[in-house]
Design a protein around this nucleic acid. Structure first.
Lengths: 153, 153
DNA sequence: TGTCATTTTTGATTCACTCAAAACTAGCTA
DNA sequence: TAGCTAGTTTTGAGTGAATCAAAAATGACA
């Protein structure tokens, strides 16, 4: 945990993406590893402690650069801030909790490309398909159970 | 087309949803019929002409009320402003043009609930599934063809 | 070690939207 | 048909998320 051990893995990842290795970027990458679905704010909050003086703008920059470089993916569930994840390159989708906003991954159920073929004649040349599930996570379910413990409904 | 003909259909729809019938709401409903995927701004722009003095806030109110009443649905493709449509109650999805932002409906391909079952053990109680396709619409394709007419690949 | 393009910082600005109080009005009731 | 009142609209301020741009700092190469 000494800062003389500069996290070779992060280093290689960033450099491999064609980006310069900077303290901000390494920290942002770490934050994304610690929290696989994080907003710019989440990342910033996690970083300021260890890297005082970092600006939110830098976090936006780093996240944007990662996304451009294909190192991270940006998703944006309706009503939520843009959220970043490091898991890229595979076809997976997301579940969003309608109560607490928590996001989790959902592996693609039906092979690599599920029922996601657009009917012919749409005129569109489809590039990607995105599936978002909305529901209530187990924590929030447990919580609402606890609130009405009467055998009610 | 006389304004003494107050659009009985819109009237009934709004009233039927338990909302008071007002000029703003009728106009907003009309705008949504004319443009099946419209943002608050789109609606406002279309309305101000015939209903000067209308505020954008009123449009937000009307659209929000429609959505709450189940008269309209709000969708929000990543990077786009909230968009409203009157087509509700059926399971359909959307294609968004990555060039011009145009949105079109996509009928649900595989019956009423496609491959949209989340793997067991996710812990989530799923309420809805949302599919968004991203691609290039025919207009934008035609346009980019026109730009590089050389048989250039 | 110096150089220079890439990054970060700082600060202003935008956009989509929400909040809240005051003014207005649809539609029920007497 | 006038009056009442809850539901709407208006006005204006305020928010969060994100972008833009210019100046200062720094990584990585020669």
């Amino acid at each position: 945990m000494l800062d003389s051990q500069p996290d070779a893995a992060a280093d290689a990842l960033i450099r491999g993406a064609g980006l310069r290795v900077t303290a901000t970027r390494v920290a942002v990458l770490d934050a994304l590893r610690a929290r696989p679905h994080a907003t710019a704010d989440d990342v910033f909050d996690r970083i300021v402690g260890s890297l005082p003086g970092t600006s939110k703008q830098s976090v936006y920059n780093a996240l944007g650069d990662f996304a451009d470089a294909g190192l991270a993916r940006r998703i944006e569930p309706a009503g939520h801030a843009g959220t970043f994840e490091l898991r890229v390159g595979d076809n997976h989708h997301h579940v969003v909790c309608t109560r607490c906003g928590r996001i989790d991954d959902v592996d693609c159920v039906v092979g690599s490309a599920p029922c996601l073929h657009v009917p012919e004649g749409s005129g569109y040349l489809i590039e990607t398909a995105e599936v978002t599930f909305w529901g209530v996570c187990s924590d929030c379910r447990a919580e609402s159970e606890a609130e009405k413990p009467r055998g009610s409904r």
